[in-house]
């Protein structure tokens, strides 16, 4: 096709960009308006002066919940990544008898609707005294994160030629030695992909959080949904709060977007 023809593609590309950015525009202009200037009638107008009151106010309201999310998400992502890496290594390279049955059974765990395990989960957490707090929520995120981290690592380790392992074995390395000195250093990128993905998933989760935590331990998603449902909290604060809640994962996306996309595509199995 001629170059001139192709420039026509900018029209749908730009229209698409407007569609995706529209909500961000509203979040930003609303957030930066002063309290007296905020009105649903002038929702689309630019702020006349720049204020940060909305963000300060939203932060004051939401900071404990942002901290809950942060405290819960970081260890969760690390533990799920380490377990996934070990599983992926074994299931890709040390296929003991039954490994090919175990793998699809683990994979199914990525897709299950958590409604089918929620009642036992709550009952168990109650009986081991982890109900209501962050450790119980973290445990749930680690366990239900294992399937996707296992899959991502296994798919990566499967691409490493077995000659490398054979050679290391000849030199006397054992299973753990090969993992530690060869596979682990090779999979640094996959660790980044998996950590980012787990961080995002756990940060954005609502279902486990709303069922397993009490108000003092709410992560940001539950707190945000709660202020959005309340009649007394103004919509401008909801907008500013949404931006604060989105910021950590958004920053990761902006700086490490390519790894994020790889994590996202891993969920499609191939």
């Amino acid at each position: 096709m001629s170059r001139k023809h192709r420039y026509g593609f900018y029209i749908p590309l730009l229209a698409g960009a407007v569609f995706y950015l529209l909500p961000v525009y509203v979040m930003l202009v609303t957030g930066f308006k002063g309290f007296e200037e905020v009105s649903l009638k002038t929702m689309w107008d630019l702020p006349t002066t720049l204020h940060v009151d909305n963000f300060v106010e939203a932060f004051n309201k939401l900071s404990p919940y942002l901290m809950n999310s942060l405290n819960m998400v970081l260890p969760t992502a690390v533990i799920a990544a380490v377990l996934g890496s070990l599983n992926g290594y074994v299931l890709a390279k040390w296929k003991f008898k039954g490994a090919d049955i175990i793998f699809p059974l683990i994979l199914f765990g990525i897709f299950i609707p958590y409604q089918s395990v929620l009642i036992p989960l709550v009952e168990l957490m109650r009986s081991i005294n982890l109900y209501g707090g962050l450790p119980g929520l973290m445990l749930a995120h680690v366990i239900y994160g294992i399937p996707i981290t296992t899959l991502t690592f296994r798919n990566y380790y499967a691409t490493i030629p077995k000659d490398i392992l054979e050679a290391a074995k000849m030199d006397g390395a054992g299973i753990l030695g090969i993992y530690w000195y060869i596979m682990r250093p090779l999979s640094v990128t996959t660790f980044v992909v998996v950590l980012i993905w787990q961080f995002t998933q756990a940060w954005n989760d609502f279902l486990f959080a709303v069922v397993l935590t009490n108000p003092a331990n709410w992560p940001i998603t539950v707190a945000l949904n709660n202020i959005a449902g309340s009649q007394v909290i103004a919509w401008n604060l909801q907008m500013a709060g949404s931006l604060l809640a989105a910021l950590p994962t958004l920053i990761i996306y902006i700086f490490l977007g390519q790894y994020f996309v790889r994590g996202m595509m891993a969920g499609a199995l191939k």
């Binding site: 995706y20 909500p23 509203v26 979040m27 995002t200 940060w203 954005n204 989760d205 609502f206 998603t221 945000l224 949904n225 959005a228 909801q238 907008m239 709060g241 949404s242 809640a245 989105a246 994962t249 958004l250 990761i252 996306y253 902006i254 994020f260 996202m264």
Partner: peptide
């Protein structure tokens, strides 16, 4: 980028 957000943030906006 919306894939990086939670459904809650998307829903509130």
């Amino acid at each position: 980028f919306p894939m990086a957000l939670s459904f809650i943030v998307t829903g509130v906006v």
